[in-house]
Every structure is written in C-alpha cells, then in structure tokens.
Lab assay of single mutants.
Amino acid sequence: MQRVNMIMAESPGLITICLLGYLLSAECTVFLDHENANKILNRPKRYNSGKLEEFVQGNLERECMEEKCSFEEAREVFENTERTTEFWKQYVDGDQCESNPCLNGGSCKDDINSYECWCPFGFEGKNCELDVTCNIKNGRCEQFCKNSADNKVVCSCTEGYRLAENQKSCEPAVPFPCGRVSVSQTSKLTRAETVFPDVDYVNSTEAETILDNITQSTQSFNDFTRVVGGEDAKPGQFPWQVVLNGKVDAFCGGSIVNEKWIVTAAHCVETGVKITVVAGEHNIEETEHTEQKRNVIRIIPHHNYNAAINKYNHDIALLELDEPLVLNSYVTPICIADKEYTNIFLKFGSGYVSGWGRVFHKGRSALVLQYLRVPLVDRATCLRSTKFTIYNNMFCAGFHEGGRDSCQGDSGGPHVTEVEGTSFLTGIISWGEECAMKGKYGIYTKVSRYVNWIKEKTKLT
C-alpha cells in the first residue's frame, strides 16, 4: 500500500490518463441519441435557420407576430419608411378606419389613436360632414345658397324668414311668412316636400332668348283662358290664391305678392273693366268669414305684352289694390325667389296649380277651390304637342294621358313649387288646347323671366 501511494504521488498524470480511459469505455446513459432527441424537440425550422439574422431580410411573422416588435424591426421587413409607417399605425392600436367614419364618399386613412378623412370636392370637416359648395344638395341650405369668396357655403332665406341657429334652416321672422300653410287642420295635408338634388348652379339658368321682337298675326285659340281631375282644397291650404270678379264672377285667378299687390295673367284683364279681388276665398257660393274683398285701382301688364300681336306672350300683369290686405292664416303671400332659384325650383319637376275653373272641358265651374299636382314636361315634348308657338318664356306641365289639367277660369292662378315646406311661385296658368285632352298640356308663363320686374313694381313704400 505504501508503494502504491508513492507511485500516485510521483505520477499524477498517469492516474488522470487511467481515469479518462475508464470513462470513455463506459456506456453513456444520461444523453439520448440524435434521433430520439429530435422526437422530443420537434420544432419547425425557421426561415433563416442556421444563418445569422443580421444578414437576412426581415420576416413579418418572425419579427412582429411571434413577439412584439419595434418600429426598427418592422422597418427591416418593409425596407421602406412609408410602408412601415402605414403598417405601424394599425399594428400599434388597430384600424381606426374600420367603422368607416368618413361621410359623403370620403376616404379614410388610419393613424395612431386617430384617423384622417380625405374629402371629395365640396366637403370638409373631420368626417367630411361639412358642405362647402352650393353645387351639392344646395349646400344643405333649406332655401338659398351662395358661395363666399373663400368658396364656403353661405345660406340665406327669402323675405319674412331668418336663418336658424344651425345656419342652414329657415324659420319665420314674421307672423305670416310667405308660402307657408298655417291653418292647423290643413298642415297635415301639406304636399310632399321637395329635397334639393345635386345641381350645376353655374349652368342652372337656361341660355334662352326671349323672342321679344317676333311679330306674329293673332292666333285663334280655343278655350285658351284655361282644375280638371283635381281635388277639393281645404280652407287655408292655398292662402296665396285669390279669385278675380268682373263682368262675371271667378273669371280668373291670381296670387298675393304682398298686402297691396296681386300677380295674374295679362290676358285676364281689360282696361276700363272694374275688377274686384277676393282673398281668403274657399267656396265661392258661401260666406265663410275668411274672405277679404278689395278693388283694383291700377293694372300693370308687362311692358312687352301686346294682345294685338299675341294674347299669351309675356302673359303676366300686376294688380294694385285700393287697401292693403290683412295677412292671416287664410290670406298669405306666395314666396318669389330670384331668377336663378325660381328656375331651379321649376326644374324640380312638379308643381301645384289651383283655381275655381271648370271641372271638365266646357263644363261647370268649381264651387270649392280645386288643386292638382302636375309634372313638368320637357321642352321637346311640349313643342311636338301643339302647332302653336311655345315661346321661351312659357313652359308645359300636365299629363300625356289627359284627364287632369287646369281649365277655363283658372287662368292667372299660381303654379307653385314647394321647397322644404315653403311654396314659391314658378308659373302662372296661361293657356292650353281644350282641357285635359290626351297628348295636350297646360301652358304656363315662366315666372323666372319676370321676377325682377315683379319685385321692382310691387315694392311697398
């Protein structure tokens, strides 16, 4: 034993070699072989497995989906700052455009905790909710729209109204504003409101030439003092309507412009014939205590009207009353817009006519005020429907199939267009061939041609 100890002390290297040989010859039971080890760690190889990531292109799944990435790591994937920024906006807080917040056709661009709407022409605001041009839906104005110097929408209202708090709607500024039905039992019968379409306001006024200088022999019209197929109006439903009495009662109609003036057809009036105007009328054979009678003290036909040349060209006249009318729910003026808007309103496509005229061709006159909704007829169809001249200051309205029309005794009465609950004068009943005849239409004086003249002559002093 002493000898062994001496050998170990003198030859430590020998001992180490012996131990190493023993270990190498022993069977290893701690580690699995290569094949079995792979069965336990069965993990798919990654895209760049075996390579240094710093030297390969980034992978979106590896960089940002398996674990949260930084902007720089995302930049490695896209290799483009702009594309990385677009991805980053949604990656950080989701897609803010998912709810489609942009209105009126706006395009949404996502941002971090926010979004941006790219608005089409005519709109602005956070969600493109603000109209900035009158060309689109009248700028959301209830009545009139004008573009300011910086191309912003400025709404306005006709006389007797003021802008509401929203700067879009119009509200009454006087007790009985024009064009409004205020009798409670008839307010439910107000005709369907007309909503502004998209309009090209630059070209809204037709490029028409008034044929002022045409000389033409007097034409022989049949029954051209021209509501057939209409309905009984309720008291106060058309408070701007008046009836004219002269040699015979209810020979023509008219509309209240203001307390002192009536507008009617020029062919209705004769110099030297006494005319009485009755406002607030409903049943011409009954006294309903809503009527107001006034005498006409002055007749002003349009300066281009000449019955000797043509009885229905420039067929418009103004009547001055001896005493002002007292405005109330049964006696209310009709609204008159400017030339541009009167023309736009007419193009809405349908209007209402009213009167006490004959209820059928050569038949009896109506006792109760009649009204009828009539569609506008395109000019080409209008011209083809008659052998008589249709001037540019006239328009056609009615039904091709016949059966409904204005008729004798309705002449001078109103053709009105309702705009968001307020009625505007767009025409004056003038003439036609018979009444409600198939293929024939009622012919009306186009008020847009005469609004400046009306307003100039009827100013209240």
Score class of each variant (00 low, 15 high):
residue 4 V to Q: 09
residue 7 I to C: 07
residue 8 M to I: 13
residue 10 E to F: 13
residue 12 P to T: 14
residue 13 G to W: 06
residue 18 C to T: 07
residue 19 L to E: 02
residue 20 L to G: 02
residue 24 L to T: 05
residue 27 E to G: 09
residue 28 C to S: 13
residue 30 V to Q: 15
residue 32 L to S: 15
residue 33 D to Q: 07
residue 34 H to E: 07
residue 35 E to P: 11
residue 37 A to Q: 05
residue 40 I to Q: 15
residue 40 I to P: 15
residue 41 L to N: 15
residue 45 K to F: 05
residue 45 K to M: 14
residue 46 R to P: 15
residue 49 S to H: 12
residue 51 K to G: 15
residue 51 K to M: 07
residue 53 E to L: 05
residue 54 E to R: 15
residue 54 E to L: 05
residue 61 E to W: 07
residue 66 E to P: 06
residue 69 C to H: 03
residue 70 S to P: 05
residue 71 F to Q: 15
residue 75 R to V: 15
residue 78 F to K: 15
residue 81 T to M: 06
residue 84 T to F: 04
residue 89 K to E: 08
residue 90 Q to R: 09
residue 91 Y to C: 04
residue 93 D to Q: 05
residue 96 Q to A: 10
residue 96 Q to K: 07
residue 98 E to F: 08
residue 99 S to Y: 04
residue 102 C to A: 00
residue 105 G to R: 04
residue 106 G to Y: 01
residue 107 S to G: 04
residue 107 S to R: 13
residue 109 K to S: 06
residue 110 D to C: 03
residue 111 D to P: 02
residue 112 I to Y: 07
residue 112 I to C: 03
residue 112 I to R: 07
residue 113 N to K: 09
residue 118 W to S: 15
residue 121 F to C: 05
residue 122 G to I: 01
residue 123 F to I: 04
residue 123 F to P: 01
residue 124 E to L: 04
residue 125 G to A: 02
residue 128 C to S: 00
residue 129 E to Y: 01
residue 129 E to F: 01
residue 130 L to T: 12
residue 140 R to K: 08
residue 140 R to H: 12
residue 141 C to R: 00
residue 143 Q to Y: 02
residue 143 Q to E: 00
residue 144 F to Q: 02
residue 146 K to N: 08
residue 150 D to I: 09
residue 151 N to F: 10
residue 157 C to E: 01
residue 162 R to L: 08
residue 163 L to K: 03
residue 163 L to F: 00
residue 165 E to G: 10
residue 165 E to N: 12
residue 168 K to E: 05
residue 173 A to N: 08
residue 175 P to Q: 06
residue 176 F to P: 00
residue 177 P to F: 00
residue 178 C to K: 01
residue 179 G to Y: 01
residue 180 R to G: 03
residue 180 R to Y: 06
residue 180 R to L: 06
residue 181 V to R: 12
residue 183 V to C: 04
residue 186 T to N: 11
residue 187 S to H: 07
residue 190 T to Y: 07
residue 192 A to V: 10
residue 193 E to W: 09
residue 193 E to C: 05
residue 196 F to W: 13
residue 198 D to Y: 08
residue 200 D to F: 10
residue 200 D to S: 11
residue 202 V to N: 13
residue 203 N to P: 10
residue 209 T to V: 11
residue 210 I to P: 07
residue 210 I to E: 12
residue 210 I to H: 09
residue 211 L to E: 06
residue 211 L to Y: 08
residue 211 L to S: 11
residue 212 D to N: 10
residue 213 N to P: 14
residue 213 N to Q: 10
residue 213 N to H: 08
residue 216 Q to R: 06
residue 218 T to C: 05
residue 223 D to Y: 06
residue 224 F to Y: 11
residue 229 G to T: 05
residue 233 A to D: 05
residue 234 K to R: 11
residue 236 G to I: 06
residue 244 L to M: 07
residue 245 N to I: 11
residue 247 K to D: 13
residue 249 D to Y: 04
residue 250 A to L: 08
residue 253 G to M: 14
residue 254 G to N: 00
residue 254 G to T: 00
residue 255 S to T: 13
residue 257 V to D: 00
residue 259 E to T: 06
residue 259 E to M: 05
residue 260 K to P: 01
residue 261 W to F: 08
residue 263 V to T: 02
residue 263 V to F: 01
residue 271 T to Y: 06
residue 273 V to C: 05
residue 276 T to N: 10
residue 278 V to D: 03
residue 278 V to Y: 04
residue 281 E to H: 13
residue 286 E to A: 09
residue 289 H to Q: 06
residue 300 I to E: 05
residue 303 H to I: 05
residue 306 N to V: 07
residue 308 A to S: 11
residue 312 Y to G: 04
residue 312 Y to F: 12
residue 313 N to H: 13
residue 329 S to I: 04
residue 331 V to Y: 00
residue 333 P to R: 03
residue 333 P to G: 03
residue 333 P to I: 00
residue 334 I to L: 06
residue 335 C to E: 00
residue 335 C to F: 00
residue 339 K to H: 08
residue 340 E to H: 13
residue 341 Y to L: 05
residue 342 T to W: 01
residue 343 N to I: 04
residue 347 K to P: 00
residue 348 F to M: 15
residue 348 F to W: 09
residue 350 S to N: 13
residue 350 S to H: 14
residue 352 Y to K: 02
residue 352 Y to Q: 03
residue 352 Y to I: 14
residue 359 V to T: 14
residue 360 F to S: 14
residue 363 G to F: 07
residue 367 L to D: 12
residue 369 L to V: 08
residue 371 Y to I: 12
residue 371 Y to T: 15
residue 374 V to Q: 05
residue 375 P to A: 14
residue 376 L to A: 04
residue 377 V to M: 06
residue 378 D to M: 04
residue 379 R to H: 11
residue 380 A to R: 07
residue 380 A to L: 10
residue 382 C to D: 01
residue 383 L to E: 13
residue 387 K to M: 08
residue 388 F to D: 06
residue 391 Y to H: 14
residue 393 N to L: 02
residue 396 C to G: 00
residue 397 A to M: 02
residue 397 A to T: 06
residue 401 E to Q: 12
residue 405 D to V: 06
residue 408 Q to H: 14
residue 408 Q to S: 12
residue 411 S to V: 14
residue 415 H to I: 03
residue 416 V to S: 08
residue 416 V to N: 03
residue 418 E to R: 11
residue 419 V to Q: 05
residue 423 S to P: 02
residue 423 S to W: 15
residue 425 L to N: 02
residue 430 S to M: 12
residue 431 W to P: 07
residue 437 M to D: 12
residue 440 K to V: 05
residue 440 K to Q: 14
residue 442 G to I: 10
residue 443 I to M: 10
residue 444 Y to S: 00
residue 445 T to E: 03
residue 447 V to M: 07
residue 448 S to K: 01
residue 448 S to P: 02
residue 448 S to T: 05
residue 450 Y to H: 03
residue 452 N to C: 04
residue 453 W to V: 01
residue 457 K to V: 10
residue 458 T to F: 00
residue 461 T to Q: 13
residue 461 T to R: 09
